[in-house]
Design a binder for these strands. Structure first.
Length: 1101
RNA sequence: GCGGAUGUGGUGGAAUGGUAGACACGCUAGCCUUAGGAGCUAGUGGGGCAACCCGUGAAGGUUCGAGUCCUUUCAUCCGCACCA
């Protein structure tokens, strides 16, 4: 018999498939298309990983399956070649990165081919090929043209080990995600991509695509949209401002640095001497921020040509022409030398601090402001008295590493700046603090602190007050001067659900504690229902005018008989509790104050309850540590928390102490206060995102050069598109520098160039792009990989995109996946791609762990090398095993034993097939009735498998598809079955069963299937054969097992035909001996019959 | 803390609300032998001699019937995290 030898058949067929270009996708094809995409590999020196195999095999199966179904399938591959690991490898081995890449890519391609993966090899893309990165640079220039790529001097994340800047997404817990080095902050001029402009759409459009839940939620989480309000606080004074004066960032900085007087030129405004104006600066297209109030001291009007060349906050202009250009840049091209400008001389009278909050409803409870240490206003607002202390604090926070600052649970620290603002609702003073628990990078870098309703502010207030008291002594407590922080509750909690007709009353909740036994008194009202019953404290109404403590003492005595109790404390605010009164039988709303009592002694008198209350509850003592888990009423739980724990109440509720806003709840309160702020001209609704702009510069050699030229005269000038690509020069040394400058900067004859605009001397940008650049559009290039005219032909894009299914690792969810969606959306806005989203469906394969159930790593030595597995078992075994391991999207550990099990399966397939092939041919005898039944049974098994495999491939449940194969093989190889299959009269059955088996196995184990297919006498490839349709008629069972239950418990199995009627089934079931036993002496209340499945008798004794 | 997911034999894992544990690994016993990374047969959730009983993290609920649906809760994993 022909032996199964994978090392022989696999290379043979791989070569044949390659020669016949079996997997070439056709661009001009009337058939429907499918575009399957896997994340192209980074060709590291380690070679292919078993994780790649899992992903690539799964989509290979789907691609082959769709091809067999007659679709035009695109399943491409390429290499993501730029990046630091290759650069480091090259430096270490003293070879060019280009050479290292070429070598690694060759290894990858060999490995991919050895797995029998059906990629369209002619479409391979290489991101470090100038023919490819020419278009990466081209897309960058389009971004630049639209203002989505800009340069900014930013304190960026700097990895001191790899000596490069990093994107936010590459920093995990304060360390660089790739090398684990603690990240430092470094101030560098950077290229940045304005991904934040797409934040909303990146989140919103997730609704239009089919991504795994955990992928879209992770992206939404990362984008971190939040709705709230910006509120302006004027420091140390109030002034009626008439208008605003817009500033350049340079002037803004100057004033923030402490310059008190300045001038600004603007087109005429209605401001006169003595007016107050708000100074604003533009942050982005639709975002401005106020930063100070200024008093106009003098107003002059002059034509631009008469404006002097020297101006405050500016380098002096070299010429009249240069001055004009600059003004045009700022005020628009309608400006000429004759345009009249009004010059305002002013004096800064009060800095403005703008804060961002998601809780404008708590504004009245804001008792102080906090600025991040990096906030520009810190310098201007700090008073002389506090300067030394503030400086010291700023120094201290600067010296702390990012890692330390990111630790949670660290004690709150901060310093008062000496400055005061006013709360716009209450008019109370709000000391302004600097503290590092406020992040400069989020919102406006400043917050209004509401200690009563925010945990962090609460912790800060506690810590600062403590410090203050220790320093100043308790006598200060009485007067509580400036920096002492007041904790002012402005929200009453709500529990339960209003019914509209709720009967309102004032009430108390008495918590009685017995200090001797450490137990607390509870009333057990029976089983808890939706809004009544359960375990509660003592509750009761308050008579009009009655003292709360008196009322509580009365209720304690009435309901429990205890009279000797001592009042300890009460809650500051009541809880609005909506509940159902089981005593009065109506919906009640109680404004409940919590009161804590201690039991003095156990003296008890007779209880004195209302008629309605009698026998409704029992009194129980519960150990203190079980009280929280025992009380099961929302309102009572809140009361208990407020009494026992010192903490903020962060929930929403009814506003109090908020002036005109009292009584408003939740979202209504937020809206009302936001609107009021807007009307007052001191605030507005605002949306903020956690997502930051994408730091796009890398100070390294091995990346796409950023196609920009810096000219002394023209500034940053894009390299003209017809001069792309800007190729990487050959250099001797690839080492990164310590200065934050790319090694490219050292290559004088590359760097020095003439300006494309003015032909003057200029220098090239020496930063390169991050390795995420090339992968941000590669799926588009696959549709037209050799085009020299455009990045991809629009007709081809229209045919192939969007990608129907994109599979890749979870680790790319907030990196590559987000970046590529951003680029795609931009290209869509430019009319360059046909769809707003690149990928219709995104799935993620689970990680393959080492045999020891931990992540594979070289240092652990638990890495499985796919080459070795292919050598020992063959590619088909590896493919099939990785599909069989477990659910595709869940992580699972490698197991050699199970691999072996799959290998055994393939041997069994092979042996069975060879046996069937060698069996004697057909006889002329017509099949007997018995033979017909046998054939029906085998056909049924085959077609059931076919149906399941079809279903499982569509649903990416590859593990159960493989199980189905195994089951079928088990059925077919059963001694008796197999013997009959080999008989001459089974020749036809044998033939068609084997054909179908081979066809359905083809996507999974392409080599074995191909070999057997040819053994069956076929000359074309099995992979271009049509996918077999299952026949629903053949699947129908002639006999079904009916489960008979009595009261839901299985008591018998009976056999019946699918056509047996319900009545017949019931009769058959009742006749079964075992069922009879259970029905004896009982009455059948109900009979449930599920056709073809079950009969259930519901009986009563 | 927020968001997401997952809890089923000794193990990986199956189960459109209808016989829980398919398939595979491992294990036990036996057979066979052209000693192979074999193959074949039988068994393998727990308890019980048996009839039967119990069993899908826990507790409730809906249902004739729940691993599956609902509520509460616990545990584990992943992501984010002083994001105001």
């Amino acid at each position: 018999m022909k032996r199964y030898n994978p090392s022989e058949i696999e290379p043979k067929w791989q070569q044949r498939w390659d020669e016949t270009k079996l997997y070439a996708a056709r661009d001009d094809d009337p058939r429907d298309k499918f575009y399957y995409l896997v994340e192209f590999p980074y060709p590291s020196g380690d070679g292919l990983h078993v994780g790649h195999v899992r992903s690539y095999t799964a989509l290979d199966i789907m691609a082959r399956y769709k091809r067999m179904q007659g679709y035009n399938v695109l399943y491409p591959i390429g290499y993501d070649e730029f990046g630091l690991p290759t650069e480091n490898y090259a430096i270490k081995h003293k070879i060019a990165p280009q050479a290292a890449t070429a070598r690694n890519v060759a290894t990858f391609e060999r490995q991919l081919r050895a797995l029998g993966l059906g990629f369209d090899w002619d479409r391979q893309v290489h991101t470090s090929d100038p023919k490819y990165y020419r278009w990466t640079q081209w897309i960058f220039l389009q971004l630049y043209k639209r203002g989505l790529a800009y340069q900014a001097e930013l304190p960026i994340n700097w990895c001191p080990f790899e000596k490069t800047g990093l994107a936010n997404e590459e920093v995990v817990n304060g360390v660089h995600e790739r090398c684990g080095t603690p990240v430092e902050k470094k101030l560098l001029k950077q290229w940045v991509l304005r991904i934040t402009r797409y934040a909303d759409r990146l989140a919103e459009d997730l609704k239009t695509v089919d991504y795994l839940d955990r992928i879209s939620s992770q992206q939404i989480n990362w984008i971190g949209r939040s709705e709230g309000a910006e509120i302006e606080f004027t420091v140390g004074g109030e002034h009626e401002t008439k208008d605003s004066l817009k500033f350049t960032p340079e002037l803004t900085r100057l004033i923030q640095a402490g310059t008190k007087t300045s001038t600004i030129r603007l087109e005429p405004k209605q401001l006169v001497e003595g007016d107050y104006a708000k100074l604003i600066t533009r942050i982005s297209k639709d975002e401005v921020q106020a930063f100070a109030v200024a008093k106009i001291t003098r107003v002059e009007t002059a034509k631009l040509k008469d404006v002097p060349l020297e101006q405050e906050g500016h380098e002096p202009y070299a010429s009249q022409d240069e001055k004009l250009k600059d003004f045009q840049k700022f005020y628009g091209t309608t400006v000429t030398d004759e345009t009249e400008f009004t010059t305002y001389h002013f004096e800064v009278v009060a800095p403005i601090v703008t804060v961002y909050t998601t809780r404008p409803d708590t504004l009245a409870g804001a008792t102080f402001l906090v600025l991040a240490p990096e906030h520009a206003a810190v310098r201007t607002i700090t008073t002389a008295d506090q300067r030394a202390e503030v400086e010291a604090y700023l120094k201290k926070t600067q010296s702390e590493s990012e890692v330390a600052r990111q630790e949670t649970d660290r004690p709150k620290t901060g310093v008062w700046t000496g400055a005061i603002a006013k709360n716009p609702i209450t008019g109370r003073d709000m000391p302004i603090w600097v503290a590092d628990y406020v992040l400069a990078s989020y919102g406006t870098g400043a917050i209004m602190a509401v200690p009563a309703h925010d945990e962090r502010d609460f912790a800060f207030a506690k810590a600062m007050n403590q410090q203050f008291l220790e320093a100043e002594g308790p006598e200060y407590l009485a007067s509580r001067p400036a920096p002492y922080i007041t904790i002012a509750p402005v929200i009453e909690p709500i529990a339960g659900t209003p019914h509209g007709d709720d009967h309102e009353k004032e009430a108390i909740v008495a918590v009685v504690h017995n200090p001797k036994t450490n137990e607390t008194l509870l009333l057990d009202w029976g089983p808890r229902h939706s809004n009544w019953g359960g375990m509660l404290f003592i509750g009761g109404g308050v008579e009009p005018g009655e003292d709360l403590v008196k009322a509580a003492e009365r209720e304690i005595a009435e309901e429990t008989g205890y009279t000797r109790v001592k009042f300890v404390r009460q809650t500051e605010v009541p809880v609005n509790n909506y509940y159902y009164s089981n005593v009065k039988h109506r919906h009640d709303k109680a404004r409940m104050y919590g009161l804590l009592f201690e039991l003095v002694d156990e003296t008890q008198v007779a209880t004195n309850m209302d008629e309605g209350e009698k026998n409704k509850f029992t009194v129980t003592w519960v150990p203190d540590d079980e009280v929280f888990s025992t009380v099961n009423d929302g309102g009572h739980e809140i009361i208990y928390r407020m009494l026992m724990r010192e903490e903020a109440f962060p929930g929403e509720g009814v506003l109090i102490h908020s002036g005109q806003f009292d009584g408003l709840v939740g979202i209504e309160a937020k809206r009302a206060i936001t609107k009021w702020l807007f009307d007052q001209g001191i605030g507005r609704g605002a949306t903020k995102y956690k997502l930051r702009d994408w730091i796009f510069s890398r100070q390294h050699y091995w990346g796409e050069p950023i196609p920009i030229v810096h000219c002394a005269v023209c500034g940053a000038v894009p390299v003209p598109e017809d001069r792309l690509p800007v190729e990487l020069p050959a250099v001797k040394s690839y080492e990164p520098t310590d200065t934050g400058e790319s090694p490219l900067a050292a290559i004088a004859d590359w760097v020095n160039i003439t300006c494309p605009q003015c032909d003057g001397p200029a220098k090239r940008e020496t930063d390169t792009m991050p390795n995420w650049a090339g992968s941000s559009w590669y799926w588009l290039r696959y549709t037209d990989p050799h085009n020299d005219m455009v990045f991809a032909d629009s007709a081809k894009l229209a045919y192939w995109t969007p990608v129907d299914l994109y599979n890749g690792g979870m680790e790319h969810t907030t990196l590559h996946l987000l970046y590529s969606r951003f680029w795609h959306k931009f290209l869509y806005d430019e009319g360059l791609v046909p769809t707003p989203e690149p990928y219709a469906r995104r799935r993620s394969h689970g990680m393959i762990l080492g045999p020891d159930n931990v992540k594979m790593s070289k240092s652990r030595g638990n890495v499985i090398n796919p080459d070795k597995v292919v050598d020992e078992y063959g590619a088909d075994t590896l493919r099939l095993y990785e599909m069989f391991m477990g659910p595709f999207d869940e992580q699972t550990a490698w197991s050699d034993e199970r691999l072996n099990g799959v290998s055994r399966f393939l041997y069994r397939v092979w042996t069975l097939a060879q046996d069937l092939l060698a069996a004697p041919g057909a006889t002329t005898a017509a099949p007997s009735g018995d033979q017909g039944a046998f054939e029906a049974e085998i056909d049924r098994a085959v077609h059931k498998t076919l149906k399941k495999v079809h279903h499982d491939i569509e649903g990416m449940q590859f593990n159960t598809a493989v199980s189905a194969f195994m089951e079928l093989i088990n059925t077919l190889t059963k001694a008796e079955t197999k013997a009959r299959l080999l008989l001459p009269e089974s020749a036809g059955l044998r033939q068609r069963s084997l054909r179908t088996l081979v066809l359905m196995l083809a996507p999974f184990a392409p080599h074995v299937a191909e070999e057997l297919w040819h053994d069956l006498g076929e000359s074309d490839s099995v992979h271009v054969a049509g996918w077999p349709q299952y026949d629903p008629e053949l699947i129908k069972d002639d006999i079904v097992t009916i489960v008979v239950q009595v009261n839901g418990k299985v008591r018998a199995n009976i056999l019946a035909t699918p056509e047996t009627t319900e009545a017949e089934l019931t009769e058959l079931a009742r006749a079964d001996a075992n069922v009879v036993k259970y029905l004896e002496g009982a009455t059948i209340v109900k009979t449930i019959v599920v056709p073809r499945k079950l009969v259930n008798f519901v009986v009563k004794p």
